[in-house]
Amino acid sequence: KKRTSIEVSVKGALESHFLKCPKPSAQEITNLADSLQLEKEVVRVWFCNRRQKEKR
């Protein structure tokens, strides 16, 4: 499966949402994916990866 490159503006939106809520619910992920026009899975994985980055 190909990697999804996320635009800078979208990254900013994801980042600001992450600061408010690092573990969004499935519903929040769906809403966020719809508003940013990304697949739910891409948003879910982004949050997962971002939480791991926070641990490092």
Results as ranks from 00 to 15, higher is better:
Glu39Trp: 01
Asp34Asn: 15
Leu14Ser: 01
Val8Met: 15
Asn31Ile: 13
Val42Trp: 09
Lys40Ile: 14
Lys1Gln: 06
Ile29Lys: 00
Ser5Cys: 15
Ala13Asp: 05
Arg56Asn: 08
Lys20Val: 08
Leu32His: 03
Lys23Gln: 07
Lys23Pro: 02
Arg50Glu: 03
Leu14Lys: 00
Ile29His: 00
Ala33Cys: 03
Asn31Ala: 10
Thr30Arg: 07
Thr30His: 08
Ser25Ile: 02
Lys20Thr: 06
Val43Ala: 03
Phe47Leu: 04
Leu14Phe: 01
Ser35Gln: 12
Lys23Phe: 12
Lys11Val: 10
Val42Pro: 03
Arg56Ala: 11
Ala13Arg: 13
Arg3Gly: 14
Val45Arg: 09
Val45Gly: 11
Arg3Gln: 07
Ser5Pro: 15
His17Trp: 11
Arg50Gln: 06
Ser25Leu: 03
Glu28Gln: 08
Gln52Cys: 08
Lys40Met: 05
Lys55Gly: 14
Leu38Ser: 02
Leu14Tyr: 02
Ser25Lys: 03
Val42Asn: 03
Phe18Met: 00
Leu36Trp: 03
Arg56Gln: 15
Gln37Arg: 10
Thr4Glu: 10
Arg51Ile: 07
Ser9Val: 08
Val45Gln: 14
Thr30Ile: 12
Arg56Pro: 06
Lys11Phe: 07
Ala33Ser: 11
Phe47Cys: 01
Ser9His: 15
Lys55Ile: 06
Ser16Tyr: 13
Arg3Lys: 14
Val8Thr: 15
Lys20Trp: 04
Asn49Trp: 05
Gly12Phe: 11
Gln37Glu: 12
Ser35Cys: 10
Cys48Met: 13
Arg50His: 03
Val45Ala: 14
Lys2Met: 11
Asn31Asp: 14
Leu32Gln: 01
Lys53Ile: 09
Asn31Val: 11
Ser5Ile: 09
Cys48Asp: 12
Gln37Trp: 04
Leu19Lys: 11
Val8Tyr: 04
Ile29Asp: 01
Ser9Asp: 14
Asn31Tyr: 13
Thr30Glu: 09
Leu36Arg: 00
Gln27Phe: 06
Ile6Thr: 14
Arg50Leu: 02
Val8Leu: 15
Ser35His: 11
Ser5Leu: 11
Leu19Val: 10
Ser5Lys: 15
Thr4His: 04
Gly12Lys: 12
Ser35Lys: 15
Glu54Asp: 14
Trp46Phe: 02
Ala33Glu: 00
Asn31His: 10
Lys23Tyr: 11
Ser25Met: 03
Thr4Ser: 10
Lys11Gly: 08
Ser5Val: 15
Ile6Ala: 12
Ile29Trp: 01
Lys53Phe: 08
Lys11Cys: 08
Ile29Pro: 01
Gln27Thr: 08
Arg50Trp: 01
Gln52Ser: 13
Leu32Ser: 00
Ile29Tyr: 01
Cys21Ala: 06
Leu19Asp: 07
Glu7Lys: 13
Gln37Pro: 03
Leu19Gln: 13
Arg44Asp: 09
Glu54Cys: 05
Pro22Met: 01
Pro22Ile: 03
Gln37Met: 09
Lys2Val: 11
Leu19Glu: 10
Lys55Cys: 08
Thr4Tyr: 07
Asn49Cys: 07
Ala13Ser: 10
Pro22His: 04
Gln52Tyr: 06
Glu41Pro: 00
Ser35Tyr: 11
Asn49Asp: 07
Lys2Ala: 08
His17Gly: 03
Lys55Asp: 10
Ser16Trp: 03
Leu32Ala: 01
Pro24Trp: 02
Cys48Trp: 09
Ala26Phe: 05
Glu41Ser: 06
Glu54Ala: 07
Lys40Pro: 07
Leu36Val: 03
Gly12Ser: 15
Cys21Gly: 04
Glu39Thr: 10
Ser16Leu: 09
Val42His: 05
Gly12Asn: 15
Glu15Gln: 02
Lys55Phe: 05
Leu32Lys: 00
Pro22Trp: 01
Glu39Phe: 00
Ala26Leu: 13
Ser9Arg: 12
Cys21Tyr: 04
Thr4Gly: 10
Cys21Phe: 04
Glu15Cys: 03
Val8Cys: 07
Val42Ile: 09
Ser9Ala: 14
Gln37Ala: 13
Arg3Leu: 14
Thr4Lys: 08
Asn31Cys: 13
Leu32Gly: 01
Val8Ala: 12
Lys53Arg: 11
Leu19Ile: 08
Arg51Glu: 08
Ser16Phe: 06
Lys1Asp: 09
Arg51Gly: 08
Thr30Lys: 11
Lys1Trp: 08
Leu38His: 02
Ser35Glu: 12
Glu7Thr: 15
Arg44Trp: 04
Arg56Cys: 04
Thr30Ala: 12
Leu19Tyr: 05
Ser5Arg: 13
Ser9Trp: 07
Cys21Arg: 04
Val43Phe: 00
Ser9Leu: 07
Ser16Gln: 13
Thr30Tyr: 05
Ile29Cys: 03
Phe47Met: 08
Glu41Ala: 05
Ala33Asp: 01
Pro24Asp: 02
Val45His: 15
Ser35Pro: 02
Arg51His: 05
Gln27Lys: 09
Phe47Asp: 05
Glu7His: 12
Arg51Cys: 05
Arg3Asn: 11
Ala26Asp: 13
Gln37Leu: 07
Ala13Lys: 13
Arg50Pro: 01
Asn31Ser: 12
Asn49Thr: 09
Glu54His: 04
Leu38Phe: 01
Lys11Tyr: 14
Leu19His: 07
Ala26Pro: 14
Glu41Ile: 00
Ser25Pro: 04
Ser25Trp: 01
Ser5His: 15
His17Thr: 06
Lys23Cys: 13
Gln27Met: 07
Cys48Ala: 09
Thr30Cys: 12
Lys20Asp: 07
Leu19Met: 14
Val45Cys: 07
Lys1His: 04
Leu14Gln: 00
Leu19Gly: 06
Gln52Val: 09
Ala13Leu: 10
Lys40Val: 14
Val43Ser: 01
Arg3Cys: 04
Phe18Tyr: 13
Lys11Ile: 13
Asn31Leu: 13
